[in-house]
Design a protein around this nucleic acid. Structure first.
Length: 744
DNA sequence: GTTCTAGAAC
DNA sequence: GTTCTAGAAC
């Protein structure tokens, strides 16, 4: 009987058992999940798979239940590895639960396309679901899916929407010892989509609109948490297993999806491959010990920074060894975890933002050779070769060299990687130079040195950054001889600064567009707090101090209650301080580092849709008050204010704040990007088009209805007060304009 | 983003 | 003279 802590007295002799029902389409990674946990866990698990249970033939649900029961009788925990997509399918398995046996669901809600492509590609799948047929099957199944709910009888439900969350859940379950249990509750569920599109046309029949209240949580399930467990004695569990920052348990990630990733951006992260275990054939058991021990030693020094061990496949032996050993040592898995992905595309393909990556280099620090080294040099191009050459010509085993990437480097632009740390481990491969001939005494020492050098290197990057920020902050304090800002009116909003971001704005020449004021010794982590924004083209743009107001509201909406209409987990709704029309509100994304359309990528699609839906919800309310209004929802191509915000603006443009050409043209030329179009483009191309030609904002003034030209703003305004010509066809299409059904 | 204001346009 | 714009400062 294994005993981990003081709670043994309260735990049954058998230990705690679980039934974990995987819920997900074919290709969502259910079997991989089970195998990873079973491989790493100290608890005995049995995977019940309907595809294999029938001895070659497809099995039945009854067979699954029978063998689940017998495994449970033997004191084992059970994975139910079948799709379990609808409630009816799950009901039978829920009956397996009892006072001693928790029933959990792990929902692998990965993008449909991903599931399909995995199903299509794989061969020899147990369920014989492969080839072109898979796509149709997956699609059909997903149409029937019903998200599991606590009320069905689960004591815990974990939703995973991307690989990072899947890995987090794997870590959580892998770490379960024989007598541990997990907190009850529902974790990681996305907010329920506010689909208002259909309802909007019937708004007049509806009684209630959204009210300006502060609502914390908008999903029925995510409020369920500790203490509210609906069944079973889950109250005796020991402390929750450590979780990843983007694991579902974390308070701030509840109900969010892509926002989670944006928060990630601010956490300094080193992604590193296992050193010497591939080509250099170092023993995996020994290597995994060294990795875990060295990580354990360094974590306390790293502050909020993270270390992530990366390998290419879920079958990676080194990952599962390390995962198990880290769990055994109770290493904080928000600070250190394993991750499956290609180290050169973690940010774009796997939604894991790493600002530093390690390269398993060769001693000559040359490209090629294969594996990680070849991939990194190839992805980083000549920039990395040159930058490396500046720093070192060769490496001895056990050492590392930190190479800052120039801003022109593709890895920097695409992935946000600011530094590559080359590290050289010991060689156990007789085919390679300097083989240690199986001398593991020396080998382990050198490998330990290698990881130590690597982590020291990462630490030095963090330190430089820290001092750099402090210094810049001090400079600011010295320079700002001017007293309190003299701006009036909204001064409160404008002057509130958290601290750091003020430094950039005071020093940078604004908007010149091409200054990359990052010297080689000044690394960056995420780019959001710095107030510097990296655009698609790799240029940086500095946000002025006045441009920070939305950022502060997004981070601390509760401090600005007067200006805020609604606070949700991922979005804040507020009145535009200088409305350009009778109704003009902003739907502000709260994700850190998401400042404008240029920052928007495929991972933000759900957020964009949600912002649109929330906008429509408010439109519905406004139309209820005045059915004559017509609304347009969209983004400015190049906003003046930092923090992605969707304008919801009525088309009367009747406002004293609409004063100049720029105001008009920013809402009435292609500079204004309709939300519907943005969503479609991101869905199709993974990014939004931007029309940020300066010329657009200084175009001649034309009526947005009849397209007549006017010499100046006052004349234009007097014209639009009376113009009743129907809107141009372009605006009437695709739902660009939102209006009451029975108004003109 | 707004405010302020010089100077162009009328 | 007044109105309006546009650029700089914040």
């Amino acid at each position: 009987m294994e005993v981990d802590d003081g709670s043994e007295a309260r735990v049954e002799m058998k230990g705690k058992q679980s039934v974990v029902m995987l819920v997900g389409a074919p290709g969502s990674g259910k079997s991989t999940f089970c195998d990873a946990v079973i491989g790493a866990s100290r608890r005995t698990w049995v995977r019940i798979c309907q595809d294999t249970i029938g001895n070659g033939k497809a099995g039945t649900k009854a067979q699954c239940i029978k063998s689940a029961l017998s495994a449970l009788n033997e004191g084992k925990s059970v994975f139910i590895d079948r799709c379990n997509l609808d409630r009816e399918q799950r009901a039978e398995f829920l009956k397996l639960g009892s006072a001693q046996i928790d029933v959990h669901a792990v929902v692998l809600d990965l993008p449909t396309q991903l599931c399909i492509s995995r199903s299509v590609k794989r061969t020899g799948h147990e369920g014989n679901l492969q080839g072109g047929k898979a796509a149709a099957v997956v699609n059909r199944m997903l149409q029937k899916k019903e998200s599991p709910k606590l009320i069905e009888g689960f004591s815990r439900i974990t939703f995973c929407h991307n690989d990072a969350e899947v890995q987090a859940a794997m870590g959580t379950y892998s770490g379960l010892g024989p007598s541990d249990s997990l907190l009850p509750g529902c974790f990681g569920q996305k907010s329920q989509d506010a689909k208002v599109q259909v309802g909007i046309m019937k708004f007049l029949k509806k009684a209630e609109g959204p009210s300006p209240v502060v609502s914390k949580v908008n999903s029925d399930q995510s409020v369920a948490s500790i203490g509210s467990s609906e069944k079973k004695g889950a109250s005796l569990e020991r402390e929750e297993m450590p979780v990843l920052p983007n694991a579902p348990q974390k308070e701030e990630s509840k109900g969010k999806d892509n926002a989670v990733q944006a928060i990630d951006k601010d956490v300094p992260t080193l992604a590193f491959p296992s050193i010497s275990t591939a080509d250099f054939q170092f023993n995996l058991e020994k290597a995994s010990d060294i990795i875990v021990e060295t990580v354990e030693e360094f974590l306390p020094k790293l502050g909020n920074a993270r270390l992530v061990l990366v390998d290419l496949t879920y079958e990676s032996k080194i990952l599962s060894l390390v995962r198990a050993k880290a769990a055994k040592k109770s290493i904080d898995s928000s600070k250190f975890f394993t991750f499956v992905g290609n180290i050169i595309e973690l940010s774009t393909k796997r939604a894991l933002h790493c600002n530093v990556i390690a390269n398993a280099a060769n001693w000559r620090l040359r490209p090629g050779g294969g594996g990680v080294n070849a991939a990194i040099f190839k992805a980083a191009g000549a920039d990395l070769e040159m930058a490396t050459n500046d720093r070192a010509k060769s490496l001895v085993p056990g050492s590392a060299v930190v190479v800052p990437l120039p801003s022109t480097c593709p890895l920097y632009n695409r992935e946000g990687i600011t530094h590559v740390i080359h590290v050289l481990g010991p060689n156990m491969n007789p085919q390679r130079p300097n083989c240690l001939n199986n001398d593991y005494n020396k080998g382990c020492m050198v490998l330990r040195q290698a990881y130590t050098s690597l982590f020291e290197g990462f630490l030095s990057i963090l330190k430089i950054q820290e001092t750099s920020v402090t210094k810049r902050h001090e400079e600011l304090l010295h320079h700002s001889g001017r007293g309190p800002d003299k701006s009036v009116g909204n001064g409160d909003l404008k002057n509130k600064r958290d601290d750091v971001d003020a430094s950039d704005s005071s020093k940078k020449s604004r908007g010149s567009g091409n200054e990359v004021e990052i010297d080689s010794t000044r690394p960056r982590t995420g780019n959001s707090d710095s107030g510097i924004q990296t655009t698609d083209r790799g240029m940086t743009k500095a946000w002025g101090s006045w441009a920070q107001a939305f950022y502060h509201i997004a981070m601390h909406p509760e401090r600005q209650k007067d200006d805020v209409l609604e606070i949700l987990e991922d979005v804040v709704v507020l009145n535009d301080l200088y409305p350009k029309a009778q109704k003009h509100i902003l739907i502000l994304a709260r994700a850190r580092g998401l400042d404008c359309l240029a920052d928007v990528h495929e991972v933000h699609l759900e957020l964009l849709r949600r912002m649109h839906d929330i906008g429509l919800k408010w439109v519905e309310k406004f139309l209820h008050e005045d059915s004559q209004l017509v609304f347009r929802l969209g983004y400015h191509s190049a906003p003046s204010m930092r923090q992605l915000h969707l304008h919801v603006v009525s088309q009367d443009f009747n406002s004293v704040h609409l004063k100049n050409k720029k105001h008009w043209n920013s809402f009435n030329t292609a500079f204004f990007r309709d939300s519907v179009d943005v969503i479609e483009e991101v869905n199709k191309n993974g990014k939004a088009m931007m029309k940020d030609d300066k010329s657009l904002l200084s175009m001649e003034l034309r009526c947005h209805r009849c397209r007549s030209a006017h010499p100046n703003i006052p004349r234009l305004k007097s014209h639009i007060r009376n113009c009743q010509v129907p809107f141009p066809a372009f605006l009437l299409q695709s739902g660009r304009l939102v209006r009451a059904l029975d108004s003109n």
